[in-house]
C-alpha cells in the first residue's frame, strides 16, 4: 500500500447549488481509489449536499467538513475520498 495518497484541491467558492457537487463529482471521477479531494465552497448547502452525495454514490466518502471564517466570508472545506469504482 502506498504510504501517502495524493490530494487535489478544488475551489468552487462563489458557485451555488448544484455547481459545487457537479464540479466536485467531475473532479473525483478522474481520480484514483484512495485519493482525496479538498473542496472549498461558500455555499452553505454544500455541507448537507456532500453528505447526500456520499449517501447516494458509493464512489465517494466525506471524511471531514469544516468551516473557516476569514474577512466575514465563511468557506466550507470538505475533504472527500474516492473509494473503489464499481
Amino acid at each position: 500500500m502506498a504510504a501517502k495518497k495524493s490530494t487535489a484541491t478544488l475551489d468552487v467558492t462563489g458557485l451555488k447549488c448544484p455547481l459545487p457537487v457537479v464540479k466536485a463529482s467531475r473532479a473525483l471521477a478522474a481520480m484514483k481509489k484512495g485519493e482525496r479531494l479538498v473542496v472549498l465552497s461558500t455555499d452553505r448547502a454544500s455541507v448537507p449536499d456532500m453528505i447526500g452525495w456520499a449517501k447516494a454514490d458509493p464512489r465517494v466518502i466525506v471524511e471531514r467538513q469544516e468551516e473557516r471564517t476569514a474577512d466575514a466570508t465563511t468557506v466550507f472545506v470538505h475533504t472527500l475520498r474516492r473509494t473503489a469504482s464499481l
Binding site: 447549488c17 448544484p18 457537487v21 463529482s25 449536499d49 447526500g52 458509493p58 464512489r59
Partner: peptide, 12 residues
C-alpha cells in the same frame, strides 16, 4: 435542470 445535474453528479 438543477435536479438533473445534481442527480448526474451523484452518479445517477
Amino acid at each position: 435542470l438543477i435536479l438533473a445535474n445534481g442527480a448526474a453528479a451523484v452518479g445517477m
